[in-house]
Structures are given as C-alpha cells and as structure tokens.
Design a protein around this nucleic acid. Sequence first.
DNA 1: CGCGAGTTTGAGAGAAGTCAAAGTGTGTGG
DNA 2: CCACACACTTTGACTTCTCTCAAACTCGCG
Lengths: 245, 245
Amino acid sequence: MDPSALPVSQPAAHEASCTQVACGVCAFNPLCHSPTASMGAPSPVESRRRLAPGECLYRARSPHASIYAVRAGFLKASVPGACGAGQVVRFLLPGDVAGLEGYAGGVHETDAVALGDCEVCEIPAYRAEILSDFNPRIGAQLRRLLAQELVAARASAASLASRDVHERIGRFLVDLGRRWRGRGYSATRFRLPMSRRDIASYLGLTPETLSRALSGFQARGWIRLKGRELDLLEPAALASPTGAR
Amino acid sequence: MDPSALPVSQPAAHEASCTQVACGVCAFNPLCHSPTASMGAPSPVESRRRLAPGECLYRARSPHASIYAVRAGFLKASVPGACGAGQVVRFLLPGDVAGLEGYAGGVHETDAVALGDCEVCEIPAYRAEILSDFNPRIGAQLRRLLAQELVAARASAASLASRDVHERIGRFLVDLGRRWRGRGYSATRFRLPMSRRDIASYLGLTPETLSRALSGFQARGWIRLKGRELDLLEPAALASPTGAR
DNA sequence: CGCGAGTTTGAGAGAAGTCAAAGTGTGTGG
DNA sequence: CCACACACTTTGACTTCTCTCAAACTCGCG
C-alpha cells in the first residue's frame, strides 16, 4: 500500500490547521452536485458554519432543522445519558454527515460537539425533503446515507457486545484508519482527533483500561503512539481476537 | 395505565399460535395503504412468506432483493461474527420491518432468523423505490423507518457501552414491554420470544451472568419469571442504575 | 417415560474497575 | 520567550465483578 498511489485530496491548510477534505469525498456530494443543483438551481447548502472546540452543533431533543456535512475538523455524537458526560456513540470525520437521525421523530437524538475547530455545510431539512421529492436520485442518496449509518451503528453495537476488549480497541483503531483511507489519507498513520476519555466512552471502557491496552499494543510492537500521533504497525494483529494471538 | 384503555388489536390466533398484529400497528402500513395503493394500484406487498423455527429470512451478504414486515412471530438479526453463532443485534416483533439496512450497499448485513413460526409480508426493494419516487409520502416514510432503526441501534450501542450490567438487563426488559404496549399488549406481562442465550448475546453477556441477574431481580421482587413468561413488577427499579438502588 | 437442549446454580480464576499518584503535554499569562 | 498551571494520560495497588468450567436441574418433545 503505497500512500502516494492513493487518490490524495490535497489537505489544504485551513485556518487553525483544520483537516479538510475535498467535496469529492463528501457524503453530501450527490446532493450538492445533483443535476437539479447544477441546472441553475441554487446549491442546497444554505450556509457554512464554524464551530469552536467544544461548541455544540446541535443538542439532543432540539428540533431537527438541518442536516450537516463536516467540511473540516471533527465532532463527536453522544447520547446525554442520565449521569455525567453521556455516552459517545459516534465520531465524525470530514466528509461525514450529521443529523440524519432527526428524520425519526423530528428531533435530534444526540448531542453533536466539535472536537476542535470545525466547519460544516448546512442543508435545511425541509430543503433536502423537497429536493428528494423532486429528484429520485437525491431520495435514494438520503436512503443510502441513512442505511450506511444504520449498518455502522449495528456494527458498533455488535463490537461492543463482543466481550474481547483488546479486539474491540484494535478494531476501533484499524477502522479509523480505514475511514482515513476513504478520504485519501494514510490508513496506518494519522492523528487521533479525540481524547482517550472519548475513546474509552465510545468503547465502553474506563480511560485507565484503554491506556493499559494501548501500552500493551505498543509493547508488542503493534502500534506506535505518542500523544495522539498513531502508527498502526500490525493492523492484522490488532483486529484479531485475543485467542488467535 | 389501564391495559383495556389501550388500542388493543385483537390477537387473533394464527395457526401454530403465532402472535399476530393488525395492519394498523405495522410499520409498513403507510406503504401498503398509501393513496397510490388504494387508487386501484395493486398493493406493494408482493407475497407473504412463512418461516419455520430457525429458518432464515435472509442471510448476510445476500443481495438486497426485498424488505419485509413481520406479520406474525418473531425473528432475530445477527451479524455473523468470526466465531460461532454471531452477535444478535436486534429482535423483531410483529409489525417491525426487516431488511432496510440493505439500502446501504445492496446486500444484507445481518442474518435474519425466525425464532418460531413466522409470517412476513414481502415488498420487492425495487417496488419500494419506485413507489417512493412516485409518492413523496412513501419516500418520507422510508426515511422515517430507516431513521427510527438508526436511533434504536444507537440507543442499543449506548446501552452496551454503559458498564452497568444490571441496568442494561433491566432496561432491555422494560424496553421490550414498551414495544409490546405499542402493539396493543401489556407492557408488563408477556412471553419472551427468545432464548436466554440470544438475550445474553444481544446484551454482551454470558448466559450464566444473565441468569444470575434475572434470579437476583426475582429475589428482590422486581420481576416474576417462569420459563419465558415474564411479569415486570417494578419497571422503575429495573431501569435505574445500580448505584441509585 | 426418557432423552436432550436449555437453564440455573456453584466454585474458582481472571480481567476490568476503582482509587490514588506520578508523569506528560498544552495553553495561558507574565 | 519563558514559566506556570491545569487538564490529560499513564502507571500502580487493590477490589470487585464477570467469565470459565462443571454439575444439577427443568422443561418440552419424541
């Protein structure tokens, strides 16, 4: 896997050194660049919005006014569980779409919080609806996006239900690399956009257990980890069950 | 909560004593009974299909040919994990829809297996697509169904990530009751359609741990459980964190 | 009536959680 | 530009809980 052979979208330095992706790898792309949109109609994207670190894109139970594409930066989505900071259920990378779950009941079901400086494209929900009524391809694209998120959520639940903690952590790292590759970056060298605490929450662990496991991976030479800079040296080993090691 | 005040759909005894629901509580209802369908067009439901206990409705990686509504009986959906029987990620009750996740990549992502005698309504995927292209309400309904499943899957993942095992089990039981109530039955007295092993798999536990927890609930007078017949006596206590007890 | 799968119960080992403290990195203010 | 403070991360010791292995028990079905 030669990284230079990949269709690298130029990571143009955004202000504050956000990671950014080209529209080409954005999940919104078929909406923004639909025939409808290109034939003189205005882009469905109403506005762009900036978020500071820790700022909320939307909160659980707020009305489902818009859907968003992450243009630069990272967010986490968490369900505001009874106690404390809530469970992180998803991490959003540039090109991901946020807010689709609002189609269920007209309100958002999660908090979406920026992990750093962010920029998102906003499409009003009613506009997406109208577009998809008018253009079957857009309707199909919305269904596909929803179904993809559903598949990812199911996979996440299945992973959490597997009791092999080390495999869960390893798969998380490898999967994150896979998502980076889909955006034109290296699948084995990247920076973790989120804190250990957030990762631990997402994986259903304590930060201490996560840290110990990561140290263990490093001791075996499977990863190299310094702060948030990560190198996956043995992806296959990371993703395999503990028993098969 | 007087059960008789609820919109009880008559549980007509199907052959082999399946539990059945009226079309009124079926998630497909807006598709089957859309204006399009009633205005002379044939019902989008192509056929009904019977399944014997243990029979597969569809398998993971099989082409996404149809979506299904459960008319009678129960199914489980499981991801065919590397080892053994796979992780159960969902239980389907009468009125639930199966197969929507196929819109992501054209193939099913889970195995759908009948837990007993079942009957399902089948709608070819292409027909649902055409209908939703033609009728915006159907398109919106498909989006709503997908989003609802997404919300449920996220909630399931969040629950799995919470480390409070007893709360997880309690919430599972209460949530099952909630789903029964939505179908016109009692939320506190019902029969578990699945084995302990399946429940344990769904919750990320061993059957032994599950069994011990259920025995504990019974000892405290929170449930009454005999075989698969269940009585929820203290739903509030079941759903509360261990710490708050 | 007896077999067998499923379920419950028991004892012991192992793994993750908790509490605590040291270490590291980051951002701010002087 | 440097120093300090704070949050985050890592490591350690100990506790608690679940898992594992094993056996007894129950229920449904042939």
